[in-house]
């Protein structure tokens, strides 16, 4: 490696790269240019045509509504690739108090209606919203598939199992049940399902703390399918999509036992455990066209049985509910866009 050789070689490469450079420059001049427009802001407000929708939509809230919201958002994102949607599964309450009521998110999903404390927080921060019903969920009470001695429970019996001073063995619930200890698996107290179960079944009697509490339906399912005298409750979707793994109990609210199903929940027969799921768009955000369009699309999709029931496992809204929600939404959009 004498230096002269080295220099020569370098000379060649430099010439080479210069040539390549010139080529690249020529390419650039030949029309391979791009120009940037004005600083592209949120891109909202601009609703002249469907293709022009762009911007971001921030969604947080209930982990129960999360699968439904992400299924609908997925389809919307395919139609409008320039709208970027992000969804966080924070729990209903966490979403309201940490993100929605301080004006950080456009939508908040909830598996229960907004609570007074949260309304106050929203009002303090000047966040207005409209309540939309997303779908119906049937809280499902499940036992081990081997438990052939029980097919249904009355609401009163359900309350004896889950109240704050609960029955210890099954024969305390009903005389013909076996004298075996009850193993309870239920929703954790951070979950909207827990709040709803108290409201619908237990009322003043309070929820027992003698149970395995978890946020994940899988854990409840695994617990119940692993213990012959176990009982648990969770949202409808897990049971609907895995019907063979567990046995759902019919619930008797005075008019005879009713099994949880799409039909009984949507017709209102499955009481008291069928509950509406909500999403709360903020009025200010609805002023942006891409958010308003997404809200419309969402309400349209709530009756889509393939999506809501087939893919996600909830009960689709009825046509009437949908019309009502659409009316509410259009009013809100009009107010927002003035």
């Amino acid at each position: 490696m004498e230096p002269t050789q080295n220099l020569d070689a370098e000379g060649i490469t430099r010439r080479q790269s210069l040539a390549a450079l010139a080529g690249a420059g020529a390419l650039g001049l030949a029309g391979c240019t791009q120009s940037t427009g004005g600083s592209g802001d949120d891109g909202s407000g601009d609703g002249s045509g469907d293709d022009s929708l762009s911007g971001s939509i921030n969604i947080a809230g209930s982990s129960t509504v999360f699968p439904l919201m992400s299924a609908i958002a997925e389809d919307f994102a395919e139609d409008y690739p320039d709208v970027s949607i992000d969804i966080s599964s924070t729990g209903s309450g966490g979403g309201f108090s940490n993100f929605f009521c301080v004006g950080e998110t456009d939508f908040n999903n909830a598996s229960r209606p907004i609570q007074p404390a949260e309304e106050e927080l929203c009002a303090d921060n000047g966040v207005e919203y409209v309540e939309l019903i997303a779908a119906t969920d049937a809280v499902t009470v499940v036992v081990n598939p081997e438990a052939d001695w029980v097919d249904s429970l009355t609401v009163e019996e359900l309350a004896t199992i889950w109240e704050s001073d609960p029955a210890q063995t099954w024969d305390e619930v009903r005389d013909e049940f076996p004298n075996e200890e009850i193993e309870r698996y239920g929703a954790a107290d951070t979950s909207g399902t827990y709040d709803y179960f108290i409201e619908a079944v237990l009322g003043e009697r309070g929820h027992t703390s003698d149970y395995q509490a978890t946020e994940k339906d899988n854990n409840i399912a695994n617990g119940v399918s692993g213990s012959e005298y176990g009982i648990g409750y969770f949202g409808f979707s897990y049971y609907y999509l895995n019907p063979d793994q567990l046995k759902a109990l019919a619930i008797d609210d005075g008019d005879g036992p009713v099994e949880p199903s799409l039909d009984t929940a949507s017709s209102g027969e499955y009481t008291p455990l069928s509950r509406p799921l909500f999403t709360y768009p903020s009025i200010e955000s609805l002023g942006k066209e891409h958010v308003a369009e997404f809200a419309r699309y969402f309400v349209e999709q709530t009756t889509n049985e393939d999506l809501v029931a087939g893919d996600v496992g909830y009960v689709p809204a009825t046509e009437e509910t949908q019309e009502e929600q659409m009316g509410k939404l259009e009013d809100a959009i009009e107010r927002a866009q003035g």
Partner: peptide
């Protein structure tokens, strides 16, 4: 408050991401 699910890759350092 990072998103659980997003449907397009983040476009800037200040966009929400998963």
């Amino acid at each position: 408050g990072a998103a659980t699910t997003v449907f397009s890759a983040p476009g800037s350092l200040f966009s929400r991401f998963s």
